[in-house]
């Protein structure tokens, strides 16, 4: 298997994880762009990246550091992107009101089934912190959406 094949295999696994994490943190436009930049970095530094223990976490920080150059607010997606089966149009706004880490924890754990440890490794904080971010994020979402804790 060539290095290009290895990268392609890695790409298939890493792209959705990176994109979801960076979109959750920074919004669709900036998050997707950061994902592309991070993966481009990985391609050009594949020899180093493939030897890493946590390449996705590393590339998350690559995307993060690049996107810092042009920081902008988390942007809610257009209606047409979320309208399919969407009965709570206020959810994007409620998500946007969360802190970056709260949003990251809620989206990745609740939406995509990541574990606390996976999110913690991504942003290099303790899993317990992620648990707290998730809980606070969910509490805020419930408050914003007028949903009871039992729901």
């Amino acid at each position: 298997m060539t290095a290009a094949d290895d990268f392609e295999q890695f790409f298939d696994d890493a792209e959705p994880r990176l994109r979801r994490a960076l979109v959750a943190a920074y919004g669709p436009e900036r998050g997707r762009e950061a994902t592309a930049e991070a993966l481009a970095y990985a391609w050009q530094h594949w020899e180093q990246v493939q030897a890493m223990d946590n390449p996705v976490g590393y590339l998350y920080r690559v995307g993060q550091s690049r996107s810092r150059q042009r920081r902008q607010p988390w942007v809610t997606p257009p209606d047409d992107a979320t309208s399919g089966g969407w009965h709570e149009p206020e959810l994007p706004a409620a998500l946007a009101a969360l802190s970056e880490r709260e949003r990251l924890a809620v989206v990745l754990i609740e939406g995509f089934g990541w574990t606390y440890r996976e999110v913690a490794e991504l942003v290099e904080v303790a899993p317990s912190s992620i648990q707290s971010y998730r809980q606070r994020g969910l509490d805020k979402l419930r408050g914003a959406l007028g949903v009871s804790e039992d729901a």
């Binding site: 979109v23 669709p28 436009e29 998050g31 997606p77 979320t82 399919g84 969407w86 989206v107 939406g111």
Partner: peptide, 15 residues
């Protein structure tokens, strides 16, 4: 969970 997945995956196309 479904709504979050729709929101994130629907708003940013795969790279």
């Amino acid at each position: 969970p479904d709504r979050l997945r729709t929101l994130v995956d629907g708003a940013a196309a795969p790279v």
